[in-house]
Design a protein around this nucleic acid. Structure first.
Length: 567
RNA sequence: CGGGGCGUAGCGCAGCCUGGUAGCGCAUCUGCUUUGGGAGCAGAGGGCCGGAGGUUCAAAUCCUCUCGCCCCGACCA
């Protein structure tokens, strides 16, 4: 490709809308442009990279025994009503009506469609396993799209769905996909980690996320430094020490005046106590019903754990009116003492051994000190409902836990029979008995993978593409387009590389060398061949490695060979 | 949806408080010079100051409403 004819609008300045590095560089490198919030156009350079990633995904999916299909984006509401998700999926599902007033959803995911397809075609246990995937534009009406390709509303996703006869067979498929995912992200040049994960609204009973490690990641993961345990913090269990300290009360319960002190920090500083002696009281709504969660002042509520414990679909912090109605006090002074008996109260397990603690008094500007279970407050239900910290031991080996941030580029689930049962997708087993198909599903965010790769591979000059996903493998910087000797040499090398199947961009623009070098660095092509003054002096050209900056000089005739070897 | 911020030339911004000729840098176009890390000089073009309403002799500037975008929270690839 000749740069002079290639649609590649690079930006010298950073667009104000971009916050994180991948978003800035995707815009500056002329790979994407925004149409509206969460909606992006892929320009030729960006699309080339996306196609590379898709190519890797296709190879690995096919190798793992999956077959490519392409399913409709527009999906009839009836299918979603069958699975029950028409009501439960929420506003991320964009709903629309056709001219006959029939309701549809714009596919955010395709469990319903694929299950419908399979139930119509498959009858016998002999037909399994089946594993189908597609690479397609999804639409999710995200509450808050952000960070460019990281969280768009319209985005390209690879989604695969597997169908097996039983859990054992699913386990085998699941492992094959797990391995395929590892290979895909390795081949994309990513530093990633598979972690145990929550199943969220997709449902099912086991799941792993593939996290690209990056400070800008939206997820937090807990990794053990000793064993290979790694999990999304949403899931990571906290091990409660099993020793039994003295929990007999040593202080009387006393009401103290705490004018205007609402937050943990304000109250503990005012009373001169540690935040580990304070019990904070959160009022939440679980599927609309109020519940109370109690935690140590230094701990954070893990809403996924609490939601699971309660078996609730939906969990949110209560609004201030609800808090006032339940506690009789404004936000900041809630406590378990004297709350009405009917209210569900769950305390974090770490509070089990706590004595003589401090809590809100359910009245303005007042807290209790010396509060004790049994004597002052009925013992509530205890459960692990907090977020793991780096002070907690590894739940598997008791080793040290490190918290890291990650970008979720892939997510695999064992769905089990959730969809097949709801939608009547069954087969006849060897004994002629009707059984529900056992399913799995497996997603990769293609655009997000590209963004994640840039988050991990860049410097102050721009992107440093891992070669397998680079939009071009080589860029030839022709320093002076008016010098016929240089032009001829550059053309020769260009034709030579193209003949070898090396994807090459020939920078034949009438620009000064500095501009060409800056653009070459910005768009991150792994190898740059500079055809310039050395050609005139010693008949040499330079080959420069974008990642290391290392430059070698080679004779003009050997440039094609050397460059091919270096890729 | 709640909280915060921003809409002025293709991009980055100033001007707004204190109303009175719409400005700067980059980019674009023309000419000359330059040609190994985002050139120099000279000239040119480009704006319903997000939109609607209001106040005023006069609005980018003040007021009201609205739309869009970005950031923080709940969602997820």
């Amino acid at each position: 490709m000749r740069y002079s004819r290639f649609f590649l609008p690079t930006l010298k300045e950073v667009p104000a809308e971009a916050e994180i590095i991948s978003h800035k560089l995707l815009l500056r490198a002329g790979m994407i442009r925004k149409l509206a919030s969460g909606l992006y156009s892929y320009l030729p350079l960006g699309l080339r990279s996306l196609r590379k990633i898709e190519g890797i995904i296709r190879e690995e999916m096919n190798r793992a025994g999956a077959q490519e299909v392409l399913l409709p984006l527009v999906q009839p509401a009836e299918l979603w009503q069958e699975s029950g998700r028409w009501d439960r999926y929420g506003k991320e599902l964009l709903r629309l009506k056709d001219r006959h007033q029939r309701a549809y959803g714009l596919g955010p995911t395709h469990e319903e469609v694929i299950t419908d397809l399979i139930r119509g075609e498959v009858r016998s246990y002999r037909d399994f396993p089946i594993n189908l995937y597609q690479i397609q534009t999804k639409f999710r009406d995200e509450i808050r799209p952000r960070f460019g390709l990281m969280r768009g509303r319209e985005f390209i996703m690879k989604d695969a769905y597997s169908f097996d006869v039983d859990d054992e067979a699913l386990e085998e498929t699941y492992q094959a996909m797990y391995q395929a995912y590892c290979r895909i992200f390795e081949r994309c040049g990513l530093n990633f980690r598979p972690v145990e994960a929550d199943t969220g609204s997709i449902g099912g009973h086991a799941s792993h996320e593939f996290m690209v490690l990056a400070d800008t990641g939206e997820d937090q993961i807990a990794c053990c430094t000793s064993c290979d345990y790694a999990a999304n913090v949403e899931l990571a269990p906290v091990i409660h020490p099993s020793d039994h300290p003295d929990v007999r009360p040593s202080k009387p319960m006393t009401k103290v005046n705490t004018p205007g002190r609402r937050s943990v920090k304000e109250v503990t500083e005012f009373l001169g106590i540690s935040d580990t002696c304070l019990v904070k009281t959160l009022i939440l709504l679980a599927d609309g019903r109020p519940v109370v969660a109690l935690l140590k002042g230094n701990h954070e509520l893990n809403d996924v754990k609490l939601r699971r414990f309660l078996g609730a679909e939906d969990l949110e912090l209560a609004d201030s009116d609800t808090v006032r109605r339940i506690t009789g006090a404004p936000v900041g002074f809630a406590g378990p003492v004297g709350l009405s008996g009917g209210l569900k109260i769950i305390a974090d397990q770490d509070l089990f051994d706590l004595k003589d603690f401090v809590t809100g008094a359910n009245e303005v500007d007042a807290h209790y000190t010396g509060v004790n279970w049994g004597r002052d407050v009925p013992r509530p239900e205890f459960a692990d409902i907090r977020v793991i910290t780096e002070k907690d031991p590894c739940p598997r080996c008791k080793g040290k836990i490190e918290l890291k941030r990650g970008i979720e580029v892939g997510h695999i689930f064992k769905l089990g029979t959730k969809y097949s049962e709801a939608m009547g997708a069954t087969f006849l087993d060897a004994n002629g008995r009707k059984r529900p198909i056992v399913m799995g599903c497996y997603g990769i965010g293609v655009g997000r993978t590209l963004a994640a790769a840039i988050e991990q591979n860049h410097d102050e000059n721009g992107i440093i593409f891992p070669a397998p996903i680079a939009p071009f493998e080589v860029i030839i910087s022709l320093v002076n387009v008016t010098d016929t000797v240089m032009v001829e040499a550059a053309e020769d090398i260009y034709n030579g590389l193209m003949a070898q199947g090396v994807e090459t961009l020939l920078d034949d623009r009438k620009e000064r060398p500095g501009v060409k070098f800056k653009d070459a660095d910005l768009i991150g092509i792994p190898l740059r061949i500079t055809v310039g003054k050395r050609l005139k002096e010693t008949n040499e050209v330079e080959i420069r490695d974008r990642a290391t900056g290392k430059t070698i000089l080679v004779q003009r005739d050997r440039a094609v060979k050397r460059a091919s070897e270096m890729l």
